[in-house]
């Protein structure tokens, strides 16, 4: 599953098929970068000069459209890589990465990265896998926007977020992310009004409980049924 956070650094796709000793050596070459809420790891269109793995906090990946609208593409939680485009040459970042709260990330600069890729060619293979996973997820989301009703897209987005970061509680599956209704609207390509109306409807049906920046899925299967509905 693309963008699935892992609990241990060693489990990252980036380190597939590398030995513990090799992973240790790679981790040793990283530096730690702490930033405060509101600060940026990088801005859209900056040269992609570093690759990051978030180890603490939450990061928003956003993109500005040509008419100046800011669109939220993803929330990064530990432990997940971002800025993977730096693993390829001559690229700029397609998104901005802004800290939602105090964050810590491991950072590998371009020079260190190219040395590492030379020394551990398996890392390059793993990087391709990471990028293929990203492409796959965005293709899937694009297809959803082009073909599915809003309710279905929103249900799929909430289930995707639950799968990636949800926690099972006695009352249901909790998605605890700094996501406003406007953020959700941007992520599924609809309006704030439609998201609010749909969430309220699901709340009255007992499917979810939508708090501020928190969604509790009370009846996961009910949401799955909406997500799986044929168009």
């Amino acid at each position: 599953m693309p963008f699935q956070p892992v609990s241990r650094l060693e489990d990252l796709t980036l380190f597939n098929k590398l030995t513990e000793e090799e992973i240790r050596q790679i981790l040793k070459t990283a530096r730690q970068q702490h930033i405060q809420a509101g600060e940026f790891y990088f801005m859209q269109d900056d040269p992609a000069e570093a690759f990051y793995v978030l180890t603490k906090g939450k990061v928003r990946l956003t993109q500005f459209t040509a008419d100046g609208q800011q669109i939220l593409l993803r929330i990064i939680v530990p432990v997940t890589p971002f800025g993977a485009v730096a693993l390829a040459d001559h690229e700029t970042y397609p998104v901005s990465a802004q800290a939602v709260e105090a964050c810590t990330a491991l950072v590998w600069g371009k020079t260190v990265l190219s040395q590492l890729l030379g020394r551990f060619p398996q890392m390059a293979v793993n990087a391709v896998k990471i990028m293929a996973e990203h492409v796959q997820e965005f293709q899937q989301r694009f297809t959803e926007i082009a073909t599915q009703r809003v309710e279905r897209r929103l249900a799929r987005m909430i289930l995707r977020l639950a799968h990636q970061t949800g926690v099972k509680t006695p009352r249901g599956v909790e998605v605890n992310l700094p996501l406003s209704r406007q953020d959700l609207a941007e992520m599924v390509g609809t309006t704030l009004y439609t998201v609010s109306r749909t969430l309220s409807q699901w709340e009255s049906q007992g499917l979810i409980q939508a708090g501020r920046e928190r969604i509790l899925i009370l009846h996961p299967h009910g949401l799955v049924k909406i997500a799986e509905e044929e168009t």
């Binding site: 289930l159 639950a162 799968h163 799955v224």
Partner: peptide, 20 residues
């Protein structure tokens, strides 16, 4: 049943599926 490949399968049990 849509449990195969479902995003919620890591949270749900056999009992949940039977009930659903």
């Amino acid at each position: 049943m849509v449990c195969v490949g479902c995003w919620m399968s890591k949270f749900d049990t056999v009992a949940d599926a039977v009930w659903n």
